[in-house]
Write a protein that binds this DNA or RNA. Structure first.
Lengths: 238, 238
DNA sequence: TAGTGGTCTAGACCACCGA
DNA sequence: CGGTGGTCTAGACCACTAG
């Protein structure tokens, strides 16, 4: 781990809020007090508090102080970048992944357009069904550029592609564009999912970028209508 | 407007990126150069650049510099807090608002739960259909606490409640929790919208908070399946 | 008026990158 | 090696809120 002072302070305050040591609607100590407590400058404290504010833990009010928000109301932060494995872990539900298709292929015209590549590039194509509480309700279709991911195995796909990329390949994922739309079910959806009578499906399209700003992965996460939920915490103004 | 130096710099760079003066994949001047150009300190420049980074305009790379991202790929930022009027303006599509129900009521049990209030509080209840290119595809149901909004008129609802709150009442909206789910269509949906044969509807639930952290508005925005689209730009790590 | 958070400064040291 | 962005400091002034 790095030794970021402001991150350490953020984590400590974060923990205190989650544990209830700092209660909702109460004020946290002022920036001046905190800078003495932590023996650091005020700007460093402010960095930590701004992080807390961005992530919905506190609300800063000019002239008054910083108030703790009711985190329970904002729980389940599906917003941002999270992998299915991280998600199912925090939700505490038993889940299972079934790899249906896996291989190295040439891109078809659709993928060429999505990833903005030529026919010469090879890509990993993975199709997985996600089962939660006995029902197959999510179909994940991943397309990764071989250029950035030389090796991929079925075993990795059964665990977490995401963890493999970050931990083993040490690829730094920096940002993603996410798009949510509703589409008609395909035969593929019907084949791999427990769709009941639903005729539509919620599709989350993810365009994932690396640290050097290169687009390297396109993912479609297809959710059964009744099981889909997306939560976002948004701040107004800056 | 206020005279925030870092905001002014942010806006100027933002404009240069949007206009193409600073092109995608090119580097912007270094922080040291910019601090000389703008005759300011480096920390102030960094504030501006961090804002650009958060909003998806640039990517900062340690040891190298800041690279301009392809903004066109991330256009249409429905993410965050935007009103229908702001949205239709940026999309450049002709739109129309029809106020179906409007009045001051006592909260039913559902709204009491959503807004976390008692039976004594009065609320404004507004139901509006949004028509785009001749089709009624969005049903907005707004519930506002009278405690914070003493007066509301049908005319305001036909224009923009949001603008009225911010500009005239000078209420400061600071953050919101947004939740997206899919529900079965109600009779109300069928009555007020051009639903065709869709049996489900995308519901965006908004819990809106003021500067002093008080919850004062609950909004349901019900979108016809085929017309719904949500785009998000997410960064990983901090 | 005293205390709060918001902004800004000038300088410092570090890790990282490229030549 | 020099240049880059990342972090941290100690101090300053401001606008706002409260008593």
């Amino acid at each position: 781990m790095k030794s970021n002072k402001f991150l350490a302070i953020y984590n400590e305050l974060c923990k205190q809020i989650k544990s209830g040591e700092l209660k909702p609607h109460e004020k946290i100590p002022s920036e001046n007090v905190l800078s003495e407590q932590y023996e650091t400058s005020r700007e460093t404290i402010r960095k930590a508090l701004n992080l807390l504010s961005q992530n919905g833990f506190i609300q800063k009010v000019k002239g008054k102080g910083s108030i703790v928000l009711d985190v329970r109301k904002f729980s389940f932060p599906v917003s941002g970048l999270v992998s299915f494995k991280e998600l199912s872990k925090t939700m505490g539900q038993p889940s299972q992944t079934i790899v249906h298709e896996f291989g190295l292929v040439r891109p078809d015209s659709f993928i060429k357009k999505q990833l903005n590549i030529s026919s010469k590039d090879e890509i990993w194509r993975v199709i997985r069904a996600r089962q939660i509480e006995g029902e197959k309700i999510i179909l994940d279709k991943d397309f990764l550029l071989k250029k950035h991911v030389p090796l991929l195995t079925k075993e990795i796909c059964e665990d977490s592609i995401f963890q493999y990329l970050e931990n083993d390949l040490n690829l730094k994922i920096s940002f993603a564009k996410k798009e949510i739309v509703v589409e008609n079910c395909t035969e593929e959806d019907q084949q791999y999912l427990d769709l009941e009578d639903f005729q539509h499906i919620v599709v989350v399209k993810n365009y994932v970028y690396l640290d050097d700003t290169s687009l390297f992965q396109y993912t479609e996460s297809r959710h059964r209508l009744d099981k889909f939920r997306f939560v976002d915490f948004a701040r107004r103004g800056h």
